[in-house]
Design a binder for these strands. Structure first.
Lengths: 252, 252
DNA sequence: CTTGACCTTGACGTTACGTCAACGTCTAGC
DNA sequence: GCTAGACGTTGACGTAACGTCAAGGTCAAG
């Protein structure tokens, strides 16, 4: 009647280590334990093991298997929840496959591995997380896939726009323009329009960036030396921030 | 120039713990370590971190990221291999989704959770692993999905065929038939035809089961009390085994 | 009684960090 | 100079589900 641990393992296509594990976590105690410590399993235990292995084969975690077999949870409910997780995982995988595929073709076209020079050191997507954490913009899930998806020409166009905008800001600041001036406000308008065109920006799609996000970015332009450097120093960055603030308060 | 660990973490959207981990495994040593043990990172380290995070985001394991960044492996090659793994995982997930979906509908139709009574306790699919291990049949990947996919009518038909075949074996054995007799050999032929019809059987699809597999099964009918019981004891099982052996040697 | 097969518990390794714990360091304000 | 509080350090455990030794006890056959 009673089988040894290895016999049971072979019969069910698993290992004795697994059975000991299931005993250790209380999932499948042996039907009998001899004085020597030897584990013995009867037919009921075999049936339970079959069920465990089937559910595990469907991808359920062991604690969940246990809840189902001990009738603490409806099998159908558990499986439905599991199905949702599986679909999430499928989506995640699909996105990852797309990203990897895209990166491979990009590399084969001679693109550098990274877009670390994208935006000429002015990569907002790399700082959105920080803006969000420090100034509480709405949550979003950015990424640089959209940038890598652009054609070389589009990228050049984009970079040129960024460079021009930055140069205009610097020029206005050096000239002593005030943040509230018409010129500064026009730059702020262009800046916001540009921000809104970046996928991942809070407000992207509505035509204008979220107010809190713009205010947060402005603060960071000043606070972060990398951004400040882009505008030729903290002085200029402060000017940009103030101009953006005025614009945001009045228009966003 | 040099940033503290937490600043770098915030800038790149990760955590200081992660940076310490990358230091510990030699993936990203700080550019400078003060006498106090404090870690400081320069711009080069930031760039490397960006690359690490991008590759990690694509799903590469850290040792692989390290090999790529240290130019020990071509990025495209690594990504292609990774893509293969991702596709395998996608396939696995698809199959699992199908299995879970099927199980859910089966449960809703009132089927018992398990098919542990399938084949009336004569489930070859449950023992194929053992046959393979002990007698070296070809590798295969069985499963009981095909059985669960059968309609109720099909299952009854199937069970009846199995029962009839078993009864015929028992009858022949009890009558004292010899393994090499025409009657026994005809039963062996039917038995092999039946085996070949089971998806997962080595040789399934060729119309006849693999010779080694049949020989192995015959041994198991005798060796395993569960199978032997199906034939009414070890005596009868031995008869079945011998008849199968004769048939297999002459026809497979 | 021996030999070999099989059993036991214990413990470490796997992946990429999260999360304390205990304790040293830096900086700003008084 | 002192102190509070923020930030840094190393060390260690936990995660999921076992695989894989290691050291040593048990069982069945010859």
């Amino acid at each position: 009647m009673d089988r040894t641990i290895h016999d049971v393992a072979r019969l069910c296509g698993t290992t004795s280590r697994t059975l000991r594990h299931y005993d250790a976590i209380g999932l499948l105690p042996p039907s009998r334990v001899a004085g020597t410590g030897y584990r013995y399993y009867d037919d009921d235990a075999l049936v339970r093991l079959q069920r465990i292995l089937l559910l595990r084969g469907l991808g359920l975690a062991l604690p969940e298997v246990q809840r189902v077999l001990d009738s603490e949870q409806d099998p159908v409910t558990a499986l439905r929840a599991h199905l949702d997780r599986l679909r999430d995982e499928q989506n995640r995988l699909s996105r990852q496959v797309a990203s990897v595929t895209w990166t491979i073709t990009a590399l084969e076209n001679g693109d550098p591995l990274m877009a670390e020079t994208m935006f000429d050191g002015f990569d907002h997507t790399r700082y959105q997380d920080e803006v969000e954490q420090r100034w509480g913009a709405a949550a979003y899930a950015p990424g640089d896939a959209w940038w890598r998806a652009l054609s070389a020409v589009d990228r050049e166009t984009w970079k040129r726009r960024v460079t021009e905008l930055g140069a205009a800001w610097v020029a206005a600041a050096e000239r002593g323009t005030t943040p509230g001036s018409a010129e500064a406000q026009d730059l702020a308008r262009r800046h916001c329009a540009w921000l809104a065109s970046i996928p991942g920006t809070p407000g992207h799609g509505t035509g204008r960036p979220a107010k809190e996000y713009v205010l947060g970015l402005g603060e960071m332009y000043v606070a972060d030396p990398r951004f400040a450097a882009h505008y030729g120093g903290e002085q200029n960055a402060t000017f940009v921030r103030d101009a953006l603030r005025v614009y945001a308060e009045g228009n966003l």
